[in-house]
Design a protein around this nucleic acid. Structure first.
Lengths: 341, 341
DNA sequence: ATGAAAGCGCTAACAT
DNA sequence: ATGTTAGCGCTTTCAT
């Protein structure tokens, strides 16, 4: 296998200078038809492909964008990444993908690696919104960064999900069915998705008045495992809630597992609402009522934000795009048993 | 924001030559302690990070690996990619991710883009095993390529899943329950996963004898949508099967949707087996019997294969690693109704 | 319109 | 042990 041909090989084959080859390939005006056609012929013959590494070197632009999320194997993130990749590729960008495991050190290490690779922009979900190390590092970057559902002190572009309204709607719906003893399982309140869900949840609770309501929040982590253990402990408690909101993208499986382990029926024994919509929510039996938003839009909008900066508007104000949520009611919620009998 | 410092800036700050800086940073022997410490001090002070693009340029190695699968939003692929990324990162590699949408033109375009980026290796699922364009292109590459569950004429490394045994076990299990009218939904037989599943399925059918069995194969595509439409047509037919095997990573949702649309009960009216294990299979009601393999191992082994080539064994024979499958029996299968009554 | 040459940041080969 | 320099493949400036 011969080495790939370089621009010199093309120049030699076309009997022109390398500069002319470059000019032809980059569509400059000042080239004669004769040279142009000879260059194209040589390119064709040699199957020449410009080396992007060399171009990056020279142009100080790599046409790569880094994407780092907590865990790419979570279906929701897959949808986001897919849409982002699709939106990027038409402009000649390629996506670097990595997962952070929600660990700060990994995140810092990852960001450094991305900077050394001279990526043009970054899409990410930081593991913290107030950690000085991470925030300072991101602020020191001179490239566009868009955060996915995060609210950091720095003024960065972000695509936010309206978990507040979504969760409030979910809680109000449960209240309307007669529930007074409801649990919200979500991640740490130091992270926007957890914080906003808690806000919507507690706000809904105030409608009932303090005396009548027993709304509890468990905000440990967004993981499936913690969803399972929190739900299990809740379900074993003497006064178990009559409804649970699984407030995270990967939490429903854990909650359903716990419900099953306790031999409880949905919605008779317990009502369930998922904080994000998935195949599992749609096809469980009964189907699970869920807070939905468009993950594809989330990815797409993040990319649009980046591209607009990359195309020149580098100095505009930080944009915060809020994506609406919608409560999809299905069969997993009913009036609490006590009330029905 | 100042420009990132270069090796020259470090050399100047440490009052040494650029060559010495490079030697220190790359751990060469011939450097005095004095120079070493001065360099490290300067690096620290300037927060210098070597430019990977320049390194790639000089060393002819980019430390990037491309990964292209049909659709990254399919949970199974997420698991594979996650494991692969984890295995790569320790060696300083970063992953380029793209999806092919199972379209040949996209695939070719993608491969070209990857080559122009001078990726060191490629992990992929080709959309075809016999297409001359794609195969010839891949063969022309001088870099390691590992195929995920594909069998192309060229001698490439591959990680294969034992769908043959998995599907045969699934079909035999259904036979043991008394089913004689079973349908396999899977993708085109020109692709290994479809082909092997069909092989296992038909081989199991022969045990029953031609007269007694009514085993039908629908091999259109692996997509959820086609699973839905094929299952729907099957379920509406006058002689509908008593069991369906959803033989693809994303097909179970489509099949369950169809079953639900027809108001059928699992396993009373119809038995279901999933061709790959997911949260949905584990947590549906009833839980769905599934053919399982370790997607994490699939990703990990693919990377091991690549790294071993990258570390020198470039000329060894192509390896074909076969990953075992296992039938996880859950509650979605029962004897067919006719037989029970 | 085209050729020649500088230079992006780095490593390695060559001097000393 | 350390400094100097060529050169990776490309784009662009400067001559002509």
């Amino acid at each position: 296998m011969a080495e790939s041909p370089t621009i010199r090989d093309v120049a030699r084959a076309a009997k022109v200078a390398v500069g002319s080859v470059s000019r032809v390939l980059n569509g400059h005006k000042s080239v004669s038809d004769d040279v142009r056609s000879r260059v194209f012929k040589a390119v064709e013959k040699l199957k020449y492909e410009p080396d992007r590494v060399a171009q990056s070197m020279r142009l100080r632009v790599t046409k790569t964008i880094a994407c780092a999320t907590r865990d790419i194997s979570i279906p929701g993130f897959g949808n986001i990444v897919k849409a982002a990749e699709e939106a990027l590729r038409d402009d000649g960008y390629t996506l670097f993908l990595a997962h952070t495991d929600e660990r700060k050190e990994r995140e810092i290490e990852l960001l450094r690696a991305f900077m050394r690779r001279r990526v043009d922009a970054i899409i990410m979900t930081t593991s913290s919104e107030d950690d000085v190390d991470v925030c300072r590092q991101i602020e020191s970057f001179d490239i566009p960064v868009v955060l996915l559902d995060r609210d950091v002190p720095a003024s960065l572009d972000s695509v936010l999900i309206d978990h507040y309204r979504g969760t409030r709607a979910a809680a109000e719906y449960l209240i309307s069915l007669g529930h007074t003893h409801v649990a919200l399982l979500t991640g740490r309140s130091t992270l926007r998705p957890g914080r906003e869900r808690i806000r919507g949840f507690t706000e809904a609770a105030t409608q009932l008045g303090k005396r009548k309501s027993n709304f509890i929040v468990r905000s440990q982590s967004f993981s499936k495992e913690s969803a399972f253990s929190e739900a299990s402990s809740l379900l074993s408690s003497s006064s178990r809630p009559t409804a649970i909101i699984a407030g995270g993208m990967a939490m429903l499986p854990g909650v359903l597992q716990a419900v099953r382990a306790h031999g409880l029926r949905i919605p008779d024994d317990i009502s369930i609402i998922a904080g994000s919509d998935t195949d599992l929510a749609a096809l469980a039996t009964p189907a699970i009522t869920a807070v939905r938003w468009s993950e594809a839009n989330e990815g797409r909008l993040a990319v649009e934000l980046l591209l607009s900066r990359l195309k020149g508007e580098r100095r505009r104000e930080a944009s915060r795009i809020m994506l609406p949520t919608e409560l999809i009611t299905r069969g997993s919620c009913a009036a609490p048993l006590a009330r029905r009998s």
